[in-house]
Design a protein around this nucleic acid. Structure first.
Lengths: 194, 194
DNA sequence: TATACAACCTAACGTTCGTTAGCAAATTAA
DNA sequence: TTAATTTGCTAACGAACGTTAGGTTGTATA
């Protein structure tokens, strides 16, 4: 556990919080400087450009999601369990840093090429891993879904909204959230006991 | 059915498309003017400010959602049917204009006061209507959910992602999407027939 | 003690931004 | 035919933007 952040990391963290709350475009370098208590020009002793911050946040988060998914997939089990593990892994990354997650999920479109293309490729690869779990579940009868693309979209939409309301100081722990979400996505709202 | 749009409506429509694809802040009045084939200054013969466009889109969509929900709620039925009707109504509004929906859902934070406060109040009122349907379903045993706030959040996240992938020229009709979504949210992925 | 480096400063650059003023042409209504 | 309205133009405003240049200070290293 690193106790002290380098100045560059401090800048990135502060910028991420601003990007989440105001958006990338609406956050000026002068806003960021004010939040850091320095002048806007001083930031350029540490970073090359405003977009560099966005790039670093987006690709660092992409890495975290892939690593978490790899661990979740490693234990061979049923599609149901695989999906549940993948959902839990995804939620844990999301809740571990809601600001960076929000930027990763919503501000990526401000990346310039070739970063934008790289980002979209990674995202598609990530979603494909979920699709194949669902396909497996459909094939062996665990799941009943009209369309696996549709199912994946619904799962991700449920997951990727968490950062807007998750509060680390709230009642639910990340694991509880993940368990509830996967239960709801797998079983639905309906009471199936009667 | 109105066949010709007033110039003001054309501007609003073109702006909405740009706001969806680039975001409000990243869309300049000169971008909008270029898309319309006129000069930026000419736009001000029709509107007062850039934000006025955003305000009109946001509150017009809010109205549409409320009206659709009112109709869906009018027929007294079970909580399950009420919820399904409300979901269908919501999806139909979303798919009827994905650009305006995207702006409504994602660009509202660029509203200035007092419009921002008004918007947030409306949104909370709308969500409260869904919460009360869920509460009713929990109370009479139709639903089994750990937390109704959590359930509503998950429902909305599933619904409000549609605009990112829905294609009017695609295979699924809005009604089919709505039916599939409500089925998935109510019953989950799991095959409950065995 | 001398050197290097990290961190920040002031001043300013060229650009883009939303918007206004004032005017002209075309279309519609009286 | 005249008047009003709609729709657009050019030119320009002040402000904000991302960024660069060049210099100063304090701290850690040799």
């Amino acid at each position: 556990m690193q106790l002290t952040l380098s100045r560059k990391e401090q800048i990135e963290q502060t910028a991420t919080a601003l990007f989440k709350s105001k958006g990338f475009s609406a956050t000026s370098m002068r806003d960021l400087a004010t939040a850091l208590g320095i002048e806007a020009a001083s930031i350029y002793s540490h970073i090359k450009s405003k977009e560099e911050i966005l790039q670093r946040v987006c690709f660092r988060m992409a890495n975290e999601f892939f690593e978490a998914l790899a661990k979740a997939e490693s234990a061979p089990s049923s599609a149901t369990e695989k999906l549940k593990n993948a959902i839990v892994a995804h939620v844990l990354v999301l809740t571990s840093n809601t600001a960076a997650s929000a930027v990763f999920l919503h501000e990526w479109r401000h990346l310039s090429e070739p970063f934008l293309a790289d980002y979209l490729l990674l995202r598609d690869q990530y979603e494909a891993r979920f699709r194949s779990i669902i396909k497996e579940g459909i094939a062996n009868g665990e799941f009943t879904v009209p369309d696996e693309k549709f199912a994946v979209l619904t799962i991700f939409s449920g997951l990727n909204w968490i950062h807007t309301w998750y509060n680390p100081a709230g009642k639910m722990t990340p694991v509880q959230i993940a368990e509830n979400l996967s239960a709801m996505l797998l079983n639905g709202l309906k009471n199936n006991n009667n």
